[in-house]
Amino acid sequence: MRELLEESGQEPDGPLRFVGWAGFLLAPAQRAEYGALFTGPALVRRPFEANAEIGAMCWCDLNAPLSGRVSAIDVHLARLTRPTVAG
């Protein structure tokens, strides 16, 4: 919750739910990184201010094509936090 607030200015309006681990390699050194993924409700969109860790942030509809410069890994990780639909 601390990282969410520090990096995005957002505060959850309820408990966060752990959804899994993300592992990836960072270029150019191909250094292995791991992060825990959480999801939870945020009823109010608070303003974002750029900081040393994140220069920009935007809201998007993960069910629609994304425009602009968006990292494929960020889209993939965001989709992992959405609830799955049983079918």
Rank of each mutant, 00 (worst) to 15 (best):
V44R: 14
R17C: 10
P12R: 03
V19E: 10
L5I: 15
P47M: 10
Y34M: 01
R46K: 15
G40D: 07
I54A: 09
G14D: 01
E6I: 08
V44L: 09
P28N: 09
A72L: 10
A36D: 02
T81F: 02
E53D: 00
I54D: 00
V44N: 04
F24R: 15
A36F: 06
V70Y: 05
P41T: 08
A78P: 04
P47N: 05
A86M: 05
G87F: 09
A86T: 13
S67Q: 10
R2S: 04
A27P: 03
S8A: 00
N51F: 08
C58A: 05
G23Q: 14
Q30Y: 10
L62R: 14
E49G: 08
P47A: 07
Y34E: 02
E33I: 09
N51W: 06
A52I: 02
V85Y: 08
N51P: 07
L62G: 03
I73E: 05
L25H: 14
R46D: 03
L25W: 13
F18T: 14
V19G: 08
T39N: 06
G40W: 07
V75D: 00
S8V: 07
L77F: 14
N63Q: 13
E53K: 15
G14L: 01
S67N: 03
F38P: 03
I54N: 05
E3I: 02
L25R: 15
P83K: 12
E3H: 03
R82T: 06
G20H: 10
F48V: 14
G55S: 11
E7R: 11
V70C: 11
V19K: 08
Q30I: 05
S67V: 11
P15K: 13
T39Q: 08
T84K: 15
G40H: 12
G87P: 04
M1K: 10
F24P: 04
E3P: 02
W59A: 06
G9E: 02
W59T: 09
F48P: 02
R45Q: 12
V70A: 13
A29K: 15
V19C: 11
E11S: 12
L5E: 01
C60W: 07
H76A: 04
L80I: 01
Y34L: 05
G40R: 06
M57K: 13
D13Y: 02
